[in-house]
Structure formats: structure tokens, C-alpha cells
Amino acid sequence: MRRYRESTGEVAERSERSRWRAATLTDRAAIGYGLLVVGLVAVSYVLGAVGWLPDDPSRMDMARLNAPPGAGHLLGTDFLGRDILSRLIVGIQAYFLPGLLAVAISLALGITGAPAIASIIAGKIQFLRQKSFIEAAHVLGLPTRVIVAKHILWYNCAPLLIIQATLGMGEAILVETSLSYLGFGVQEPTASWGNMVQAGANYFFHGKFWPSTAPALAILGTILGFHLLGDGLNRLLEPKSAS
């Protein structure tokens, strides 16, 4: 049963706890993993900002270039012998705040009408306006503004906004890493996951897979986390088995 058909919003007011209980194990795992990733990213961001790192991310260890994970360097070293783990942590600086900002701006714009998210929401509003329940609300005398704000935007789009926020963060990581990979984003020696993959890739065909694979896996794991979190929350907030 869809929420927008409860004019009183019963389903919307169902307690969060009962929803969590209703969620499947898969959803819980997805959300759990997503929260873990978000937590790790946030903590690492703070660690990087205050400079509390396992090693100096710009210190070169000439004796150990492109080293695999091991003692001393938990995630190995890059082509200049720099600690990969420290650089991964510091690399979060490159997308964290810009990403949040981009998501915030696009969400704000989304309400008033601008690309990506906006077009989805606008499309949805267009579409929903034709629906019988909205017409019913019109007939009942509710002003259009209220209908749009409450019944269309909030009930229908709140989950959408949350999903878009998590996906937006994923996209921000994608954009930042791609730009840095191409050499137009964050420049060496400042670490970014994109320029780390790029620098490591120079040694990929020599059989030194690790220096590029480590940041690639970081990108993969993080984007996956954001996506799974968004998806899980989506299904939690919009349970289909309610009826």
C-alpha cells in the first residue's frame, strides 16, 4: 500500500523501529555496510584533517618502492616509497567537503528546479499531478502549494532525496577521482584516490598491481557503500510489503 493514499499519513508515522524490524536481513546488511563506510570515511576525514596518520604521507622510503602490504607499511608503498594507507586517508580530503557541498547544492536546487535530481523530481511532480489522489486533494480544496510541498515533495520525494544524497556522494567521488586521474584535479604530491590510481598504473604492466589497486579498491568499496546505504534506506523508508 502506498503512503500517498493514506491521507492521514499512517504509514509515514509508523515508528522507525518497526520498520527496521520489518527490513530483510539483506537490507540490514546493506545499510550496516553503508553506515560502516560512511563512518570510516568521516573518521578518516577528521584524522586526515588533524594530521593524525600512521605515517607522513609525503615521506619517501627509497628502499621500499612499490612495496606490497606488510609490516611498517600496512597497505604497502607507492612508486616513491610513500605510505599508501596514509595517502588513502589524506586523499579523502579531496572529495569529502566538495562532495558534501555539491550534494547540498544539488538538493537545494532540486527543490527549485535544476539538472539531474531536479529533473527527476520535476518529472515526478509532473507525473503525480495527473494521479487521482492529487486531484482528490484538489477537489477537497487544499491549495496547490500545500499539495506540492507536502503530498508530492515530502511523501514522495523524501526517500528520493535521501537516495539522491547518498548517490550524489558516490558521484562526487567518481567525478573527483576521474578528474585527478586525468591530471586536472588534485595534483601530486597531494594525495587523491584518483591520482594515486594514475601514479600506480604506471607500474601495473610491470606486475606491480598493488599501488593502483589499493586506491581503486578504496574507490570501489566507498562508492559501493554509499550506493548500498541509499538503496537500503530507500527500501526501509518505502516498504512494499506494508499491506
Partner: peptide, 9 residues
């Protein structure tokens, strides 16, 4: 002695 090498576009 270590030297920090910087790159710029």
C-alpha cells in the same frame, strides 16, 4: 637526505 618533489600541471 630526502627531498620532496612537487608536480604541477
Amino acid at each position: 637526505v630526502g627531498v620532496k618533489v612537487e608536480f604541477k600541471e
